[in-house]
Amino acid sequence: MKEQPSQSLPANAYLNLDPRTKLFLLLIISTIMISGEIRGMALYARLVLAAIPFVLLILGRRAKAAAIYAILFAAAWLAEAFLIYNTKGIANIVIVMLSGLISRFVPCVIMGYYTISTTRVSEFLAAMERMRFPRNITIPIAVMFRFFPTIAEESHSIDNAMKMRGIGARSFVGNPAVALEYRLVPLLMSVVKIGDELSASALTRGLGGPEKRTNVCKIGFGAWDAAFASLAVSAAVFYFVSLGG
């Protein structure tokens, strides 16, 4: 997926978390979910954390994604709870692996999807500037996001050219190294050229000056941020405490 799904929430979304909150939630969810204990009370902490992306998706009006996630996760959870004790042999291994993978990684992936698809590039940048990331990092990140759609466009056009000239998928089977070259070389040449032009253009708009950049994008912490953050923190604390006990 070379496209950058960086659309903001639809105007009628119920909430818009600060990007920093989303990253914080990601941190907690991925840490806890992956360490994956299901004994005892820790189980409930994980369930709460898994529910967070679900709730966020609903509130963000992405019901379809929320539904898919819920079904997937519920299936994996139940499989872990019951099926692994009722099956043997190869089927057992497959089920354990699959359900284990899904129940541990899918919440993180979904939280990641939520983060990327509901944060605009300018919001992301504003968040980084507030977190005092140096310019050496914020500028390349901004450029990177701006280039994803360009890479997609150029790539699509080159794809068409390859199809038209008859050097598409067919040649891959014969000689994968050459196919890789056909795919990448024109793309790199094109993107580098665009990049050079972009650099020139950015300089004429004053990028690189000594003044501190302002940012008109509005981000900030609100009630929702506090609510979700504390929920996640409590779940995490609960998790670790119940592990220790």
Partner: peptide, 17 residues
């Protein structure tokens, strides 16, 4: 400098893609 940072951004985008 600015041109370098832009290049880093571009190549990171390609690497990532």
């Amino acid at each position: 400098n600015t041109k370098d940072l832009i290049n880093i951004g571009i190549f990171t985008a390609i690497y990532f893609a």
